[in-house]
């Protein structure tokens, strides 16, 4: 029980720390938001289609945009730990490194959700679709959590390399395919108003990923960050 309480305190401390850094620097959210808005605008002009085709493409465009913006966030998340050797501060502390991983995953997810909250209304106006639907928001939460859980682990791995900015997308996207495919399919079906029976398979895959990925990350984070 005491160990669980200590781990929860570490998760909270790491989350608070990452949010405080972003609050002071505003680098990560600003770059992610600008990127997302630009991509949405570019797609808006590039896919000059009729209303029905737009509605069908919406989910794909949305998730492709979030996935690329997410790598910006993950790179920055790894960089703040690397600058000045800051990650050594928690490597030297008597903490469970897995708890640090979960704290950073929560912080990365929070940044993705903030970006989504700002970009969804813009997307909705430009593409003339209502995106604030409970089902879609659930898919967004599950997908962001799965993405952050995998991305945080791989960002820690890539941060050990000299060309980490190049390495991270190469590592992330192949392993992220199950999440992206399921998220796009589930989002698309929700937007089309399909019955839940059609949506469950994709949603189940997202749930399995959202449960398994953090567990794997928690177990393997030690091996990645230790020299």
């Amino acid at each position: 029980m005491a160990e669980l309480r200590a781990s929860l305190a570490v998760i909270a401390a790491v989350l608070r720390k990452d949010l405080a850094i972003e609050w002071r620097s505003r680098q990560l959210l600003a770059s992610m938001l600008v990127f997302v808005l630009l991509v949405i605008l570019i797609f808006n002009f590039a896919l000059d289609l009729d209303a029905r085709a737009r509605a069908e493409l919406s989910a794909g465009v949305l998730w492709a945009t979030f996935a690329f913006a997410g790598t910006l966030g993950l790179n920055r998340s790894g960089a703040i730990e690397k600058d000045g050797g800051a990650m050594n501060s928690w490597l030297l502390a008597p903490v469970d490194y897995g708890a640090v991983y979960l704290g950073k995953t929560l912080a990365n997810m929070a940044f993705m959700l903030v970006v989504a909250l700002f970009s969804l209304p813009v997307y909705g106006v430009l593409y003339n679709v209502s995106l604030f639907q409970p089902g879609l928001l659930l898919v967004l939460a599950l997908g962001s959590w799965g993405y952050s859980a995998l991305g945080t682990l791989l960002a820690a791995m890539a941060s050990q390399a000299r060309s980490r900015e190049l390495l991270l997308p190469v590592l992330v996207f192949p392993l992220l395919l199950p999440v992206l495919v399921s998220a796009v399919r589930a989002s698309s079906l929700f937007l089309q108003g399909q019955p839940m029976a059609y949506i469950w398979p994709s949603l189940n895959l997202l749930i399995v990923y959202a449960v398994c990925m953090p567990v794997l990350g928690y177990l393997f984070f030690d091996f990645i960050v230790e020299d």
Partner: peptide, 16 residues
């Protein structure tokens, strides 16, 4: 828990 270490780098978060 019983050790303090000062290395070549500061180990500090510069934005905090």
């Amino acid at each position: 828990a019983r050790m303090g270490f000062v290395g070549h780098q500061t180990f500090l978060y510069e934005d905090l």
